[in-house]
Amino acid sequence: MEWSRILTQVLGELVAPTTAAYALAAIGLNLHFGYTGLLNMGQAGFMLLGAYGFAIASMHGASVVVALLVAIACGAVFAAVLGIPTLKLRGDYLAIVTISAAEIIRMVGRSTMFDDWTGGSSGLRGDQYTAGFQALSPLPDGRTTIGPLTYLNNGFDSWWLRLVAWGVVALAVVFVLLVTRSPWGRVLKGIREDEDAVRALGKNVFAYKMQALVLGGVMGALAGVLYTLPRSVQPDGMGRSMTFFVWTVLLLGGAATLFGPVLGSMLFFALYMLLRAGMRVALPDGFVSATQIEQIGGMLVGVTLMALVIFRPQGILGNRKELAFDVR
């Protein structure tokens, strides 16, 4: 009974909106890192900015569509601002700048200076900006049970949200499929391998990298919207750890693969839930506290990331020969 409850929880994680949000963020990161070789260490910054864009626009009376456009614009502008100084430099500069910029966004977001807009460190409550989104739902009110999973049709943690979140993920997968199988995607892969060679063939490498950065960044921004729809915009919940978890998700599934990010996200959250719930049940009462379980869970994520990168850098779906890591 205890275990069947855990199994239901694990199953729930597979379809959770958060899982979809991470999958989308990882799809964006996959465009950056997997296909183009850009070391974006600030995906959480894109997500947070997108979330702020959507939430603040909604709170100031924008419709859902306009708010989404604002979120997209936030991601695109952020990518452009970061890309201009760094895309002509060596890869690790981009890493340092993106991680720093993501931190700046978070610090500014939680600062008392912009309290009226961002709500400071306590953030923005979900009900302040999700009304428009909830109103779009065509589903009748009530609960629906599919298999062992029961959720409200509408509301914060609802089927409607799940439907939209996974719909967006599916669209993103199709889009990535199309662009990466195209000659455009070929140029990106060429850049990942050796940008000088591609430049010598007459391609404007900077422009391609910028396009990839913006595209992946916009996906990150949308992922941020998805992530915050079922909860609140919390700057401190969207910091470096989030970026690193997105990386873990991507590398788990397999960089430079189409379904890697989606599989990685599902697996990551399912295992993470299994681990924590399992520990809670399996370990005797009082042996570890709830907080400690979270911490042990976090440690295991770190160890998994290390082991993954060392022993199976291509992830679950990847092809070792077409590994996304540079060999230089």
């Binding site: 070929r186 892969k189 990942r192 391998e193 000088d196 060679a197 010598a200 020969k321 077409e322």
Partner: peptide, 11 residues
């Protein structure tokens, strides 16, 4: 072309 060949090895 380049002295150290720049064949894009994973293409």
């Amino acid at each position: 072309t380049f002295q150290l060949t720049k064949a894009l090895s994973r293409l």
